[in-house]
């Protein structure tokens, strides 16, 4: 089967998942004790009961749940997520304004993770059970074990505050200016550390496993230089296992953005979500949650496509 057909099939398979994501998100809103009107009433006990009923009608809360869901989905599909109560801005406008900041941070974290993990994993696998492997294993374990908010605080305390090498708090330049890199380094490293450590371990394991396979001996028996054997034959096969967890690592970076943006005062979606949670901005919370789910499904899809590009056997299986 061709690659295009494979991709099409994967896209179609994502549709029920996306539907599930929207249902879960919607359900979260509806299983919460008390609806928006109850909260408004609680905030302002002077509201008469007929006024509350009128508000319910206005918000469509007197309709059956599935009608409410369809209404909501209709809004979502046309980009209408309602408005932010406290500022009366469109939720979608807020999300779109914050999105590039988060993408920049996440992308930086990803690139950092890959740059550390792939060479580190190769090194550890090639030197398996030697000192270098043990050291890198310890480093990777530390990277997984260190809480990212604490790592962020410590990096900031040492490198930004005490040594004053990096700027802190809200970046004041536009996202595309080169000086932005200075703002990105500390939060980017913080967000990418866990992913780097995880990926490095996976890379080491899969590489060590691949190194034991006969095609490696066969490649060496051909007289190819060890560099070619590792970087051409073994690497591509081990990357296959890394792509299977790529979506999972993306999820860890997305989750990390919530924490790290708060630590560094980064004006992205993650910090927006925390602010929304504290202000109980339901519309905003739902929009960001839904968006996160969609994004992860998309990342999964991309990982599958890369997987198929790397491994010719997969394309034929479908």
């Amino acid at each position: 089967m061709s690659l295009q057909k494979f991709i099409l099939k994967r896209i179609l398979a994502s549709v029920p998942v996306l539907f599930g994501v929207s249902v879960v998100t919607f359900a979260l809103m509806h299983i919460t004790p008390g609806d928006i009107v109850d909260q408004l009433v609680a905030a302002n006990p002077n509201v008469p009961s007929h006024e509350a009923a009128r508000l319910r009608r206005e918000f469509g809360l007197d309709q059956p749940v599935w009608v409410q869901y369809l209404d909501w989905m209709q809004g979502v599909l046309t980009g209408d997520f309602g408005e932010v109560y406290s500022s009366s801005r469109d939720v979608s406008a807020v999300v779109l304004a914050r999105l590039p900041e988060t993408i920049a941070l996440g992308l930086f974290g990803w690139v950092f993770a890959i740059l550390i993990a792939i060479p580190g994993g190769i090194y550890a696998a090639v030197n398996k059970d030697q000192l270098g492997d043990t050291v890198s294993r310890f480093v990777a374990l530390s990277g997984i074990s260190i809480p990212n908010f604490w790592l962020g605080l410590m990096l900031m305390a040492v490198f930004a505050v005490q040594l004053d090498w990096f700027p802190t708090l809200d970046p004041q330049t536009s996202l595309l200016s080169p000086s932005m890199l200075w703002w990105l380094i500390l939060p980017g490293v913080t967000i990418g550390t866990a992913a780097a450590a995880n990926m490095m371990r996976i890379m080491r394991t899969s590489m060590a496993e691949e190194l034991n396979k006969e095609y490696v001996t066969a490649a060496r028996a051909k007289g190819l230089p060890e560099r070619t054997v590792i970087l051409k034959h073994v690497l591509r096969n081990s990357l296959i296992s890394v792509t299977t967890v790529a979506a999972f690592l993306t999820a860890s970076i997305v989750a990390g953005s919530v924490v790290v943006e708060t630590v560094f005062g980064w004006p992205g979606l993650g910090r927006e979500l925390i602010d929304a949670v504290h202000l109980r901005e339901i519309n905003l919370i739902l929009a960001i949650t839904l968006f996160t789910g969609f994004f992860i499904v998309l990342a999964n899809l991309l990982a599958d496509i890369v997987y198929a590009l790397l491994d010719p056997r997969i394309r034929d299986e479908y």
Partner: peptide
Amino acid sequence: MRILDVVFAFPGLVLALILVALF
């Protein structure tokens, strides 16, 4: 497994955060 896929579509920490925020 489809249901699992849906759960996996939310990063654990984000979902836990929202649950705690709501409940």
